[in-house]
Amino acid sequence: MRACLLPLLATVLAAQADEPAEHVAAAEREPRTRIERTVHELLPSLVKVHGASGLATIGAYATGIVVSEQGHVLTLDQIMIQKGKTRVVLHDGSVHDAQLLPEEPRLGVRLLRIDPQQVQGGLRPLWPPAGDEGAFRTGQFVVSIGNAFRLAEFAEKMSATFGTVVGRANTALRHRLADVQYDGDLILTDACNNPGHQGGGLFTLDGRWIGLNLRLLDSKETNTMLSAAIPTRDLLPYLEQHVLGRTRPETVVERVPAWTGIVLFEQAGRESPPAYVERVVPGSPAAELGLRPDDLIVRIDDWSVRTCREFRDVLARCAAGQVVKLVWKRGTRVLDGELRLGEPPK
């Protein structure tokens, strides 16, 4: 079993069995440790999200984060979320019908909205985040909160897992993760995102909100499972637009496909070979940079180029006029230079 569904971390279960009434006072005792305090303060801002139907492998439940006093709840956009059938269960156990706001397809997140009039005692939004807009660093301790495996029902408290920020997966590596639409950096963590945890929050020890939990990911890069979160700061434009009604002007740039003038040595086969240069078109950007036949292209900006296919994939994301850092190997020397991508010749 390679998934991190195993209890590989000290799982701090904030969830307590529903205590009989006479024991409520004992159950609501004051938090004592740093983590207990953090979890205690955050839980009222996290909600359980229940959908109409899941798939065989994905349950119809998730977690959400209250982001406004007007009833906005942020969660991961997913198949279970359906108009008129999505319900939100607040910390106090009250159940609310959720209205769906437009999703953010690039991030794969969606805002839900519940009627704030129906909420007793008001909502406790986590947003806007503290001044540093959810900054995080590798090796930082984190607490992840969510409704893992739907263990918490009604007013039961959700689960908290502890871990570290394992690292940052940049865009160039992120594209090797399956099932992620999101295109920016990801926070990798070893605080486990079990099913149901998605849409929950990732927090620092002192309770700062730094990320929105994704589903457990498959890494094509390493053939392993990963827990990851979308950095909070990347969620801000979407939240500002739909919660505050502020829009940022979107710049639409027409992209001209990029051209390097490199012709790769490639043979038909099921597996794409390493990106060896077969020839360089005279007068092309690559010729200007001094590339020669038999050079091995190994990287474009941060993107590893291990095969001809990856070379094409990366170039497809670039546009003419863009300047990229190209790294190539000639014999035993590793060279690099800036390549100004051109337009394909007519």
Partner: peptide, 26 residues
Amino acid sequence: DGPPLPRPAPKAEPPPDDAPPPVPED
């Protein structure tokens, strides 16, 4: 997965002026 990957035979290239002493190919 098909035959072992083809690789172009490294051609002899004149060492550039600033090149370190030739080391065997990788």
